[in-house]
Amino acid sequence: MQKKLIYITSILLFYGCSNESTDDLTDPVPEKVSYSRDVKPITDTNCIPCHNNPPLNGAPMSLLTKLQVQDAIINRGLLDRISRPQGASGMMPNGGTRLPQSSIDIIKKWQTDNFSE
Results as ranks from 00 to 15, higher is better:
G87S: 09
G58T: 08
A72V: 01
H51S: 07
R76E: 13
D80W: 06
R84S: 06
L78G: 03
Q111Y: 05
K109G: 11
G58V: 08
L5H: 12
V33A: 07
N53W: 07
G77A: 04
K66M: 12
N52R: 10
I8L: 14
C47L: 00
R81D: 10
L78I: 03
C50E: 02
Q111L: 04
I42C: 05
T45F: 12
Q111R: 13
F14E: 04
Y15N: 13
L67W: 11
K108V: 11
S34P: 01
P93R: 05
F14N: 08
N53C: 04
D113I: 03
L64M: 13
D71H: 12
L56Y: 10
A72E: 00
N94F: 12
K32A: 13
E20Q: 15
G58Y: 08
T26A: 15
P60Q: 03
P85W: 07
I107D: 01
M92H: 00
P41D: 05
Q111E: 14
I74V: 14
P60W: 01
D113N: 07
S83P: 07
R37P: 05
L99H: 02
I42A: 06
A88H: 09
G77L: 09
S62N: 00
N19F: 15
N46Q: 06
V33R: 05
L67Y: 12
I104P: 06
K4M: 13
R98Y: 05
Q111I: 04
E20N: 15
F14K: 06
L12H: 08
Q68L: 00
V69S: 01
V29S: 00
P85V: 09
Q101W: 07
M1F: 10
I6L: 15
K109I: 09
Q86I: 00
K32G: 03
Q68I: 01
P54L: 00
D105N: 15
P54D: 02
G16R: 10
I82K: 02
L78N: 01
D105T: 11
G77K: 08
N75R: 09
D113S: 04
D105Q: 15
N114F: 09
P41T: 02
T97N: 12
I11N: 08
P85N: 07
E20D: 15
G95C: 10
T112S: 15
N114H: 10
N52C: 08
I73W: 04
N52G: 14
M61E: 12
G87E: 10
K109E: 06
V29F: 00
A72Y: 02
R81F: 06
T45N: 11
D113T: 04
S18Q: 13
T22P: 01
N53I: 11
N75C: 04
T26L: 15
R84N: 07
R84H: 03
Q101Y: 06
G77M: 06
K32S: 14
L79R: 00
C50A: 02
L25W: 10
P49E: 04
G87A: 09
R84W: 05
I73A: 02
N46C: 05
Q101L: 06
A59T: 07
K4V: 13
L25R: 11
E31R: 08
L67A: 14
D23Y: 13
N75Q: 10
D44S: 12
K40F: 08
L25M: 14
N94Q: 12
L78R: 00
Q68S: 03
G95V: 08
S83F: 00
Q101P: 03
R76V: 09
P55T: 08
I73H: 03
V39Q: 00
D105S: 14
G16I: 07
Q68V: 00
M1H: 11
